[in-house]
Amino acid sequence: MTIPSSEISIVTKKIAEILHPVDRELMSNIRLDEFIRIVKFDVGLIPPGEINLKNCITILVSGFIGVKHVFEDNSCISHFYHEGDVIYDTEIQLDFNELETKWHLYEPAVFCILPLEGQHADKHASLFAKLMVQSSLHSSYQYQSYINEFALDRKSFCVEWLRKYSKALGLISRKDLSIFFGISMSSLKTYIKIALQHAN
C-alpha cells in the first residue's frame, strides 16, 4: 500500500524531528516513503506481543489510542496517542511488561511504519544508525514528557486536553477519563463544562 502524497510530508517531518538537528541533513537526498509501509487496525484491544514494531519508527497517521495498564489490580489509561504522534511498541513488548500494558484503539488506526533494519537501512547506514539511536532514546523520553505533563496544574491540563481532543468524550467512558486525569467524576464533569463553554 502506498502512502497518500498528503501524508508523506507529515510523516517525513515527524521522522526528521526525531533526529538531532545536526543529523537532519542526512535525510536530504533520501526518499523515506519508499521504505515506509502502511498497516491498518480495527477498533479494539491490541494485547501485548500481538504486533511487532521492534526496531521501527511508527507514526499514527489516523486513529485514537489509549495506553492501558493494570496497576494495583485496576485497569487504567496513562496516556493517549493521537494523529501525528510517534509511537513505539517498547511499552507493549512482552519483556518488562509486568503492568500488562496494551493499546486500546478507539478508532480504526492507520500506522506508517519505517523499519530501521533491512537492505534500505544498510544502504543508508549513517542515517539509519542515527534513527536507531534517537528512536531508542525517544521511546523512554516520551514517558518523561507524560510525567512532566501530569505534574502541571491539573485543572488547566484537563481543560486544555478536553478542548483539544473533544472527540474523546464520544469515545471514552467518563470513568476511564477521570482515571486518566486522576480526578473525581464531579471534577471531570466541571472541567468538561468549562472546556465545552470555551470551545463555543
Binding site: 487504567c76 511499552e91 513488548q93 536507531m132 531508542s136 523512554s140 514517558y143 507524560y146
Partner: peptide, 21 residues
C-alpha cells in the same frame, strides 16, 4: 541501547502510574 531503554520505559511507566493512582 534498545534493551536498556526498554527498562527505562518500564521504570517510568511505573513512576507515572504511581503518580496518578
Amino acid at each position: 541501547l534498545i534493551q536498556i531503554n526498554a527498562y527505562f520505559v518500564h521504570m517510568r511507566k511505573l513512576r507515572l502510574l504511581k503518580m496518578k493512582h
